[in-house]
Design a protein around this nucleic acid. Structure first.
Lengths: 236, 236
DNA sequence: TCAGTCCGAACGAACGTTCGATCGGCACAG
DNA sequence: CTGTGCCGATCGAACGTTCGTTCGGACTGA
């Protein structure tokens, strides 16, 4: 009813007068998508039901199917938008930057910053990597692979410039970096914890020193396990 | 409970003559549990059905309920055994070791080594942290917290000994370490990839240098513009 | 009227769980 | 030793619920 896209003004007070929220097609679609993102981040993909998404978005169940073919398509669009946006952000940020260390800084900050604003979407992306099937799974996997390749290229350049003699495998290093980033959703609360640029800086520093500082310390060579058990005994 | 433990011979060829597998109660329970672990690691907790677990374990659906009260109890026992075992391993290994760096080495090697043998269980532990509810969720959370406390204590001691002036928050560092470890199940294949002691060594090295090597390199201070606003955040 | 939106009500499938029955040792009375 | 009653182990078949999805129609602005 009342097809008046922008009449209720730019304020966000337009929530739901009765059950009318006649915005643009794309706006309604995005509105449902955001509700689905919230529910899926909270309950997980399988536990999330179309009924709870409908409740969250304040539409009927059948109303969702007017905008999305299926539950799986909902997840697909969520992940597609997030990964596409992440990729675009990264490309734009590091464009024209020569120093690989600076690129790494920007990459981590971009990732954590995106996380801070779209925390639910990134949780769904980190946690529901195997919930898609078939062609849609492949398409998302391609995006993930593309993201990996970009980060890996940065890591390789950092290695080549500052840690050419390192014995650390760039692949292991890159996966460790992704581990740090993708585990964020388990513990980092952007609203209550420290600022995201602080976290980004710490992660970047830790990673950089982790791969470039290697080689100088003999103390890290603790690979002789049993010899130190000699000075044990006291602890009981 | 038909206490006839070893009558069918000591060879392991006793699997299922027809549909009889009259082992100990505990053996049958563990057998079902391993099947459940495999299925839940493969499909996720929600997607895994009692029917597929029954198929994998070669028992009837009702047969499972003779050993486990519910599907949720299955997950609980899987996680309980894994975390308890991880904790016991860690405690035993670092007992009597004085050097915190050595303790860290042992912790990572213990974790990755456990991963290599019980890969499915550790995947279920890393990925299904929110699938339990109520008292069982709390009990597992307590175990996880205990594991975190032990690792955090090691990290704190490393900081105090080798990186006392570091600006890196030990909590962030610890969570990054857990991120690297818990992300393993996404990419590391113990059967085809490099050895787990190699991976463990790389992760330990990366982490140690990441927190101890900080401060010496001005080159990592690549992006001066906005990062200084970071420390103004809610750093405790 | 027509196309675009949206909904209530329902459908079939799949799920976790339960139930009654059966099978086969084992303890024990005779 | 044998017969009998019991009990743990196991099963097939179902139960009730919940899920994703569909369908026919109602409402609205043009």
């Amino acid at each position: 009813m009342t097809e008046q896209p922008f009449e209720n003004g730019s304020t966000a007070s337009h929530m739901k007068p009765t059950h009318v929220a006649r915005d643009t097609y794309d706006e309604r679609q995005t509105h449902i998508l955001e509700a689905a993102t919230l529910v899926m981040a909270r309950d997980g993909y399988q536990r999330a039901t179309m009924r709870s998404v409908a409740r969250e978005a304040d539409v009927s169940i059948a109303g969702i199917y007017h905008y999305f073919d299926s539950k799986e398509k909902l997840l697909f669009v969520i992940q597609f938008r997030a990964f596409t946006s992440l990729l675009a952000n990264l490309r734009e940020r590091i464009h024209g930057i020569a120093d690989p260390v600076e690129q790494l800084h920007l990459m981590v900050r971009s990732h954590v910053g995106y996380f801070a604003t779209k925390i639910h979407a990134l949780k769904v992306c980190s946690h529901e990597l195997d919930s898609l099937t078939g062609a849609e799974f492949e398409e998302i996997r391609e995006l993930r692979l593309e993201y990996y390749r970009m980060v890996r290229a940065i890591v390789d350049r950092v290695f080549g410039t500052y840690a050419s003699g390192s014995r650390i495998d760039p692949h292991v290093a890159t996966m460790s970096l992704f581990g740090m980033l993708n585990w964020l959703y388990r513990w980092y609360d952007p609203s209550n914890d420290r600022s995201h640029s602080n976290v980004a800086h710490q992660i970047t520093t830790q990673f950089l020193e982790g791969i470039t500082g290697e080689g100088n310390g003999d103390r890290i060579n603790g690979s002789s396990p049993t010899e130190t058990t000699a000075r044990a005994g006291s602890q009981r």
